[in-house]
Write a protein that binds this DNA or RNA. Sequence first.
DNA 1: AACCCTATTAAGTATTACATATTCAGGTAA
DNA 2: TTACCTGAATATGTAATACTTAATAGGGTT
Lengths: 231, 231
Amino acid sequence: MSIDKDLFKLKPIAYTTMADQVENHLREYIIKRSIKPGDPIPKETEIAQALGVSRNVVREALSRLRMLGMIESRKKRGMILTQPDVMKGLELIIHPTILDEHVRKQLFELRLVLEVGLGDLLFRRKSEEHMKKLDAIVEREQKATTQIERIRCEVDFHSTLYDMAGNETLKRFQDILMPVFEYVVEYESKLDHTSVGSVTHADLVKILYDNNPEAYPNAMRKHLMPHLSHL
Amino acid sequence: MSIDKDLFKLKPIAYTTMADQVENHLREYIIKRSIKPGDPIPKETEIAQALGVSRNVVREALSRLRMLGMIESRKKRGMILTQPDVMKGLELIIHPTILDEHVRKQLFELRLVLEVGLGDLLFRRKSEEHMKKLDAIVEREQKATTQIERIRCEVDFHSTLYDMAGNETLKRFQDILMPVFEYVVEYESKLDHTSVGSVTHADLVKILYDNNPEAYPNAMRKHLMPHLSHL
DNA sequence: AACCCTATTAAGTATTACATATTCAGGTAA
DNA sequence: TTACCTGAATATGTAATACTTAATAGGGTT
């Protein structure tokens, strides 16, 4: 509770550079002026002069926003605000080899949570094509002879579910996280779990055909049980 | 299908700057050399010289990675790789007033999916304290007289569930998305839905006390039905 | 009115210089 | 020896300047 204690808690000092400040300033500027995608933002030199910093620093801040897809710039036309891809930031950070195991595990849990809760989106948005595709995957899986082929079917099946959900953001989220999952799957398969839950892909497809949203969550839970029991 | 058609689809040209290239180069460098958090990375001048670009460009690239929390730098010690917060990128982009309604709706759906699928994490990780906290919120909610107070209880309840799940990444995800949800909630309350699903918070708490993972998903679905029926 | 040429503008890149903070080594005093 | 002070070396942070490049606008010619 004492002030001294809190002081010690501070990391080597939260040093904020000019670029950090300009970045924040620009964010505030965009929000306060409620600038919308397509609208122009001031020139680099104007910003630099207005904030009393070198153009160098301004460019660092702008470079960051550009990376996130928040702004675009053309040679003469200046810069405009753009509708950012909300998952862009995730994509830039998530790389399996950089993340430690703890985080990878948490992301894998996140995936399990998503698939169990996915039902209502699926039932509302499934189409003929989607169902046919699932049928085809199940058939392919039953004919599969190699472990590699089975794993491929597994990935395709669940990936198709995300397609069916008709939510681009969710789909993108899944696509970004996929490489991490593969890492975990590999890790788990080394342990013992070549086994599959008591509910098969075919069972899940049947539930989708039967239009039975009530049955979906617990069916998926059972399907994922080998993973869930690991928590 | 024709090539010409595809060409037209290309945006005004995917122009890559030197900073973009250096950024990618650094990412590859980190991955290929499997540099781990805490390990040092080359000096700015070394990078600039090695890649044949100005130090300015290198600093733009480094500035981006620094923003994402992938590296840290000290005045003399040089720069080191750090374990990035996987959700940092999301946090930087997601601001309700910037996102268009379409994306906000998708994020709201994502939240619904998460809460329905959250069960298994809850049952495995709930503690005495958590349950007490939920009890207190339910009690507070029943005594509430104003709409504002009820909404606050609503937020607290679901927020506590994410706490209970014992997954920091998931919790952080929720915290970042919360402002967007508030926007949607406000939007929905304007329509008609002051009503609540047939399953109350108290019912959900009971299921948690009863250690009944099977009942959870459909109970939460019913609780969220006013929102789900909007899909 | 259609076309071409030129000037202008704003972002991208390079270079140089200096400020600042941190480490390290060396030297002095107790 | 130990402790403290001091200054040099170093790498990042910031500034200033100049030049390149591409896109736009405007003016003139046919």
